[in-house]
Amino acid sequence: MKVAIFGAGYSGTAIGALFAAQGIPVVGTTRSASRFGQLTEAGISPVVFDGAMIGDHLLEHMKDVTHLVQSIAPGRDGDPLIRLFDNEPKRFLPRLQWIAYLSTVGVYGDHKGAWVDEDTACRPVSDRSVERVEAEQAWQTLAAGQRIPLSVLRLSGIYGPGRNGFVNLANGTARRLVKKDQVFNRIRVEDIATATAFLAQRLYDGIINVTDDEPAPPQDVVAEAARLMGIEPPPEQDFESAELSPMARSFYGENKRVSNARLKAMGFKFTHPNYRQSLADMWAKKNWNKPQQTAF
């Protein structure tokens, strides 16, 4: 087994680190050689990939890859690997056995706070979510045509060491925006990694929500982080009158509760099933501001 992580960013690095900890060779791409040290420390062989061309070094690595994880976001021109593969992934990855595509629960769109699952129709609102739906469909078409199992992981709001409410409170950027009945799901980055490995072991083929048990109002998460830190939380702000960037405001245009029942029915157990347990874990371990200290 050899794993390739295309887009070894926050989630991709955690996924690669878990496979590497299991003694599995991992290659990970990054746009900048400045991240080579960080990836090497995680056990990942780093390669520069700009999304436009697969260089000779990366091609050499790809000859032995059996499991592909695509974590690069699509753009207006679609998914970069779909374009480069031109419907022939095995020309580059002759031993390929399984693909994971990291998508987002944003593809479901707005459901007025109702529960959604993998069978819920996608009604994307934002341009970035529309692009995700198109990328999912492109990967499904490619995988079906090549008879390669494809896991589409729909991820909720990603957080973990180095990216969480503690960090925001510490640097003064935390806000408690209140919008009536608004909730969000979240997912701890380590649970993304363990879910990816779980699905890889089974060569799972299908769509799967990777999200926590408890959709909750965002202001409650900030308040809990402040409580654990022993500080006063920032004051609540009304969402409608708050100054926000168009992108930040767009996140609040989608309100839903995302079910993880399918993944749990397969036997997967979340290490961090809700934000309270997860925040308490990071605070106790003192790793909340150390993004590469994952518990593998």
Rank of each mutant, 00 (worst) to 15 (best):
E118S: 01
G78I: 09
G12K: 09
E190Y: 01
G9Y: 12
D213T: 06
V258Q: 01
S45V: 06
Y252H: 09
T294G: 13
P46E: 12
S126E: 15
A20L: 10
V167N: 13
V152E: 12
F49I: 00
S156I: 07
E232S: 14
T194F: 02
T40Y: 00
A195N: 11
R147P: 03
V178Q: 14
Q22V: 03
G160R: 04
L96P: 10
G145C: 11
A223M: 06
D238H: 11
G230Q: 13
G230H: 08
T104G: 10
V105I: 14
E254F: 03
K112P: 02
D110Q: 09
Q22I: 00
A295Q: 11
S156C: 10
P218L: 11
D220C: 08
V189L: 04
V258P: 01
D181H: 12
K269S: 03
I54R: 01
A265F: 03
D191S: 01
P89S: 07
E136T: 11
A197R: 14
S250T: 02
R202T: 05
G165Y: 01
P94V: 07
R175Q: 15
I15C: 11
A121C: 13
K269A: 02
L58R: 05
L244E: 12
L93N: 09
Y108R: 06
L263K: 02
H61C: 12
P161Y: 14
R95M: 15
F85G: 05
I54G: 02
Y108K: 05
G113I: 06
T66G: 08
V116W: 12
A138D: 14
E134C: 01
I158A: 05
